[in-house]
Every structure is written in C-alpha cells, then in structure tokens.
Design a protein around this nucleic acid. Structure first.
Lengths: 240, 240
DNA sequence: GCACTTCCTTGACCTAAGTCAAGTACGACG
DNA sequence: CGTCGTACTTGACTTAGGTCAAGGAAGTGC
C-alpha cells in the first residue's frame, strides 16, 4: 500500500502547485484558493505534444483552455492549405473563451507550438464563475478588449499594408517587447512567422531580404539584428 | 411660462422615451428604469449629421456611444487614403467600448452613415455599471465575443480569399439576414461596400461583373438579385 | 426639366505577391 | 562525424488587384 499513499500525496501536491500557477494568471489571479481548487476539480489538466491540435474550427465548443505551460497558436486555414495565425497564447492565457461566451462552435483551430499543458474548464463551470465573480468578469472584459485591439491591427495590416511593411511592424513589436531592443531571437519558425504576417514563406524571405538590403536589419538564422530602428519604423509606418 | 413648462414636459417625456429605447437594447435591456435613468443622466444624447465623425483613431477615449438611431461605421484608414471598414453598428449597439475597457485611445475611427443619434456614456460611469451589474457584464462579454468572431472572419477573408470570393460571401450573408433571400437591397454605397470587402471601388465593380457573367447574380443599381444561390455559395466557398 | 456634381464602370497599365521548382542550409539522429 | 529530412532561399513565371484616367450613370439642387 506504500505506493498508493505516495500517489495520493503527489496528487494533492500537484493540485496545490496548480492553484499557485493559476494565482499568477491575469484572468484568475484574483480568486481565492477555494474557488481555484473548485475550478481545477471541475476541469482537468490536459497535456499536449508539440504541434498537436487542441481543437478544430467548427468543433462543438465544450469548454476553454487556460495555457499553463507552452504555447498555443490559434489560426484559420484555407482550402488550399494556407494558414493565417490569429494569435499565439502563452502561460496564463485563455484559449477558446470566445466560443464559450457566444455561439456553438470554435471559430478557429488551435494547436500547440511546444509541448504544452492546459487547464481545461467546461463551458458551464466557466460561465457560472464569470457571472458570480465580478472581478473575473472585468478581467475577462479587459482581455477580450485587448484581443479586439490586436485583431483590428491585424485587419489593418492585411488590408492596408504590404508585406514588407507588415514584417517591419512585426519585428518592431517583437523588439519592443523583448529583453533586447536591438537583437530579436525569433521564437517561432520562419514558416510560422509568415503565417502570422499573412503571407507565404517565399514572400517572407523576400521581405527579409528587402529590409536587409535597405540596411534596416541583419539576419543570421533565427536572430535578427535591428541595425537602423528609425528606418525600420519608417518602413513600418509607425513611430519608432 | 407656458412655453417653459412645455419644454420641461418634453424633456421628461424625451427621457422616458429614451429609457424605453434603451430597454430594447441587448446590452442594457436587463436594467431597471432607475438604473437606465441614472445612466442617461450621467451621459448625454449626441446628434450627428450623415457622414460625420464620432471619434478618431488615436483620440483619447473618454467614453462610449450607444447608437440610438442611424448607423455608425468603424474603420481604419491608410496614409494613402484607403479605408477598411471594421464593422457597422446600428440602433442599440455600442461603439467605442473596446477603448473604454482597455487602453487609452480609440483603436479605430467612427463616423455616421446616416443622420444619427447616440447616447454617450462616460468611461467611469460605464465601468461602474459593468462592475456592479453582472447581467450587463455577461451581455457585454457575449457582445465582445460576437465581435471577435466577426473580426476573425474578416481576417480570414482578407488573408485567405480573393475579392470575388469575399464579395460572394458578403452577398450571401446579406441575403441570409435580409427579408428576401433572393433580392438584396444594398443599404450602403458601392464605395462603402468595397471598403467593407477590403478592396477599392474599381475592383469591386469587376468582382460584381464576374459574378454576374458567371450567372450567380444580376445587379440593377443598388439591387442585387441572387439568381443561383448554390453557385454563389460555391464561389464563396461556404455552405449555401 | 436642366445643369452640375458625385458615384460607378471600364480600360490600360504596372506591380506586389503567390505558385512552382530547384538548390542550399540547418537541425536531428545514429 | 556523416546522413537524411526538413526548412529556407532564390529564380522564373503568372495572376490578382491596385492606380490612373476617362466616360457614363445616377443623384441633387434650382
């Protein structure tokens, strides 16, 4: 019976650690231990390999995921196989909440970029929580609103800017949010980057080449050195 | 004094009528008369001519508008003058709420398509209401979520579909939500329609011509007759 | 009804960017 | 380290669609 007792101890410890992780999330960080434990008990941990599907566009939406570890990419796919990334969510961020709040199905697909772990929360449990906890509702409103801003920007890019402009803006955003404002260490493949920028790998390469020949950047593998930030901002048509 | 008393009666009557209108809105329809009256008192009615600006992208976000009458278009503009419509809001719908929920500035511009009237609600008044009234918060979450779905669709269109496909899909959506599933009475100019589809008027005309020559539609001024719905759906790559 | 203005259509032209193909570079594995 | 597979780059080519211009159609005001 010794092995059985050890298993139960690890499980209790695991749950404590999980609520600790949730306490660090923006969305759920305001909840007390009891609420968090209840939420964990209603849902469940999900583990995914890298490049594994979390859900498919059109699937019936039974719940949402909070990313605990790893990254999850949300994207649309064309019949011809091209993809457009909508967003990439990291630890602490919700995925699939739109489908839980309105409609019947997931409006896009989601898959992991890395080996990942999520907390799955069934639809009703989440709706109960949000309607009872004003702070969670407010935090969720804020998160959705940030997402709408991001989508509005992407729409603007796709409609009103060419690929080099879009890439320049994307690189600037990466540099601004990174540790080093001059050296970007791309944490996704070039292929994924092209899906985020809204183009195909061939065109992305060409756009990188243009920016490099113009003297704005210099690339080596996955590293991008921003040589002339003002020029990059000019190409991107944003403030430096 | 007779004129003065009449003015006060009309104002009280106008406020009663206004709360009645608000009672019909999805967002605020669950509120009682007192709350609605309080909200009205905190904000104010705004009247706009057709094609008048409501707010500009980048302006400091002091509050949001509920459309009472008319229509308000939210859009992005490129330095070269092209426009991309994000959404068109009609009576009962909020405009600018994203900016109130996160960030400092409006992320897009808004202008009226028709002579319009709005209820302006200052930022703090709205945030107070949402945090105190769970039902309003839930309705707002649902509304934002619908909007995210709509944006995701637009992103997919702009990135993964060509103009004729986009126009076909747009016409199908209009026909589906209209009174007559075969005859669409366009309620915006062709120029505005092109901004919604993500192109320029010349290309829109050409796309209309393609769909007409293929036998899917027939146009006469602002009326579009859907002659072959299945074909239109096939072009749009959606279900009929 | 007429004149004027604005919207829409059509043609000519050019370019951005996607498709296809092949070669190079890089990463993973044994 | 060598081999293999995959990602990325580059070239050739085609096409979608935007720009510019002009004419026709429709709407507005007197």
């Amino acid at each position: 019976m010794v092995g059985s007792q050890q298993d139960e101890r690890e499980q209790a410890g695991g749950r404590q650690r999980l609520t600790l992780v949730l306490k660090q999330t923006t969305l759920l960080g305001g909840l007390d231990e009891d609420h968090l434990a209840q939420l964990v008990a209603q849902g469940g941990r999900r583990r995914f390999d890298a490049n594994q599907s979390v859900f498919f566009e059109g699937d019936r939406a039974t719940g949402l995921h909070i990313v605990l570890e790893g990254r999850v990419r949300v994207f649309k796919t064309s019949p011809r196989g091209r993809e457009q990334t909508l967003m990439i969510m990291g630890p602490g961020e919700p995925v699939g909440e739109v489908a839980v709040l309105s409609g019947e199905t997931y409006p896009a697909s989601a898959e992991t970029l890395d080996p990942s772990e999520t907390l799955y929360i069934p639809r009703q449990a989440f709706l109960d929580l949000v309607s009872r906890e004003p702070e969670v509702a407010m935090r969720l409103l804020s998160a959705l609103s940030v997402r709408l801003r991001s989508f509005a920007s992407l729409i603007e890019d796709l409609s009103l800017r060419d690929v080099s402009e879009r890439l320049a803006a994307h690189l600037l955003a990466l540099a601004t949010e990174g540790a080093d404002e001059e050296m970007i260490d791309l944490d996704v493949s070039k292929s994924q980057l092209s899906a985020a920028v809204g183009t195909v790998p061939e065109t992305l390469s060409r756009a990188f080449g243009q920016l490099a020949r113009a003297g704005a950047i210099q690339t080596r593998g996955r590293k991008v050195h921003i040589k002339d930030r003002a020029l990059l901002a000019q190409v991107a048509r944003v403030k430096p």
